[in-house]
């Protein structure tokens, strides 16, 4: 199984990558390739050209910036899971990175790739959504910032336009209570349902694999800020949400799981 033919060019800088993208409509970025190549092998993606940004060294960093941690888009999952800065300032993110796939996947996959792919079944996009991260996007016309909650738009669809590169993820420090519940039944599997809970002032909760994109459990969040108990709030986990049905789980089972996992997440986040 191999992809259909394409041209390949390795970009040595973000500006070079942007100018290639702007000159070729069907050109696509490749970072670690661990979401894109599987799609291309199945011929579900057929870019005319791959622009490899995987070697742009200055996009791979983790920096303490006072109230937040700045992570370069090309930082690999393995570097995030083992980073002392991330472990100290955003412990949930280090933990979630350690749950992605398996060690070999984490040696290649990047945070920027995972977030740009925006898969509703992915762990890291949901984590940065609950952490209220800000995404830094660079294009020929400059740099703009997008809040994570405005970034995910639909099935594998984000706020990124052709010609834009996600360059940095700014994650507010979150050393209060947190929990990440990943429910799966086999080693290295994707979450059937996952829940991220972060207590940082208010409580933020996001859901994995409950919609076509990562989403916040808004009904739970507003119930909690209105003084509801954990039990009451968790019962609202899938309020207004239409979860998918697939071979692993029916929509009803997902709704049930979401309530159970939100309750567990809230209990854990209130005790650590």
């Amino acid at each position: 199984m191999f992809p259909s033919s394409f041209d390949y060019v390795r970009a040595s800088s973000v500006s070079e990558a942007i100018s290639i993208l702007n000159n070729e409509e069907d050109a696509k970025l490749i970072a670690g390739g661990h979401s894109l190549l599987p799609l291309m092998k199945l011929r579900l993606a057929n870019p005319s050209k791959l622009v490899d940004i995987g070697r742009i060294g200055d996009l791979s960093y983790i920096a303490d910036r006072g109230d937040h941690v700045a992570i370069g888009a090309l930082t690999r999952h393995a570097a995030i899971e083992s980073s002392d800065v991330v472990k100290a300032s955003v412990p949930m993110l280090a933990y979630v990175a350690s749950l992605v796939g398996d060690p070999s996947v984490r040696h290649r996959g990047t945070l920027g790739g995972s977030v740009s792919h925006g898969d509703g079944a992915s762990d890291l996009p949901a984590a940065i959504l609950a952490l209220d991260a800000t995404l830094v996007v660079t294009s020929a016309s400059g740099v703009r910032e997008v809040a994570a909650k405005d970034f995910f738009k639909g099935f594998l669809e984000t706020d990124l336009n052709q010609g834009e590169v996600l360059t940095e993820i700014k994650v507010p420090k979150a050393t209060g209570g947190w929990s990440y519940q990943k429910f799966n039944r086999r080693a290295q599997d994707w979450a059937i349902v996952g829940v991220a809970a972060v207590r940082n002032g208010s409580t933020k909760i996001s859901l994995v694999n409950m919609a076509s994109m990562p989403i916040r459990a808004e009904a739970v969040e507003s119930a909690l800020s209105g003084g509801a108990s954990i039990e009451e709030a968790a019962a609202l986990a899938s309020e207004g949400i239409e979860p998918p049905s697939d071979l692993n789980a029916s929509a009803d089972y997902r709704r049930h799981l979401a309530s159970v996992l939100v309750r567990r997440a809230l209990v854990e986040a209130s005790s650590n």
Partner: peptide, 25 residues
């Protein structure tokens, strides 16, 4: 499909599933 690990090799000393990496990379 990057699931089984039979194709694992080292790239710069780290394990990688070589069915999910291009030779040009």
């Amino acid at each position: 499909t990057s699931s089984c690990g039979a194709c694992t090799v080292h790239v710069n000393g780290e394990s990688v599933k070589s069915c999910t990496m291009l030779a040009v990379q």
